[in-house]
Design a protein around this nucleic acid. Structure first.
Lengths: 159, 159
DNA sequence: TATTTACAGGACTAACTTAGTCCGATATAT
DNA sequence: ATATATCGGACTAAGTTAGTCCTGTAAATA
């Protein structure tokens, strides 16, 4: 089904809430508040926010009145960053993550084009930011965001 | 990690072999031959080929001297068709597969853009065919295949 | 300084999905 | 007839993911 994990999905939703909160100068929200806002279980929210903070997408503040806030402006957080933070490198098959992942590496006929497909998908996810996701990018449309189609071209013709 | 399943990966490799075999007018190959050629276990190969035949990507022929051959010319088999045949609709999250998959559907802030991202990825996979995968498309380069980058645009500016 | 609040960092369990096997039935060529 | 292959499905084992829980540490407040 070519899917991202539920945790990653939740992470996207949580970050979208932080982006919205930031606009209203209520930048710091703790895990409990976020759990209430999203109707997700607190332990799950807490776990995800911890990871996002580790990866620098959120800033954390301990102690009373603590919580999390966005680590970067929404325009500088790409969807690819979020996915990578929560589930590692974006790669459709193990072999494209690097050498040594596949016994067929030596004889595989389709590895090169596969790496290209992979790259095209990664680029698609790099090109949309959290700001666009919540519909507040000055460069992108209000909504729905329109993503241009992808072309496969001969390198000789490219750019 | 945003990955496709191993079975789908195998399916791609198997179809690539069929595409190569077709060029040499050895169109029909049975599951045992394919297992040997790919070094994959026979039962696994058999299972995958059955599914691909069900979905019309392969033609099957029973009995002695039977086997499988491509159901369509390699140029008409898209990578997206292969993935969909083996693991269902291409969709990063359940909610984009249709209504009723997510309890947050009513309140979700990011569903629309997400559907667009999804579409962009699907299009990327629709645009590359089996012929290009094995490096024999007349329209695509020899190798490596180059896939143009994706742009997110305002619908007003589009097309 | 004591207390409360909230994140940090793990270990852990249960549920689910995927990979892989196996078997009896059916169709085809010789 | 017999041998060869696919068909269709059930089944098992392995791996992954989702979700919980607990102990420690940092910060604010009174």
């Amino acid at each position: 089904m070519l899917r991202i994990s539920k945790l990653t999905d939740y992470g996207l939703v949580l970050l979208a809430h932080y982006a919205a909160a930031e606009e209203q100068s209520e930048a710091v929200k703790n895990a409990r508040e976020m759990a209430e806002a999203t109707l997700l279980p607190y332990p799950v929210v807490s776990k995800i926010l911890k990871t996002l903070a580790q990866e620098g997408l959120l800033l954390s503040r301990r102690g009373s009145k603590g919580g999390y806030s966005l680590g970067l402006p929404p325009k500088e957080i790409r969807v690819s960053d979020i996915i990578e933070a929560l589930e590692g490198p974006i790669t459709l098959m193990a072999c494209t993550a690097g050498p040594g992942h596949c016994e067929q590496e030596a004889t595989c006929q389709i590895r090169d084009p596969w790496i290209q497909i992979n790259g095209a998908i990664r680029e698609t996810l790099e090109r949309i930011t959290l700001a666009e996701l919540v519909g507040n990018s000055p460069t992108a449309s209000s909504r729905p965001t329109q993503i241009k189609q992808v072309a496969i071209e001969n390198p000789r013709d490219a750019h």
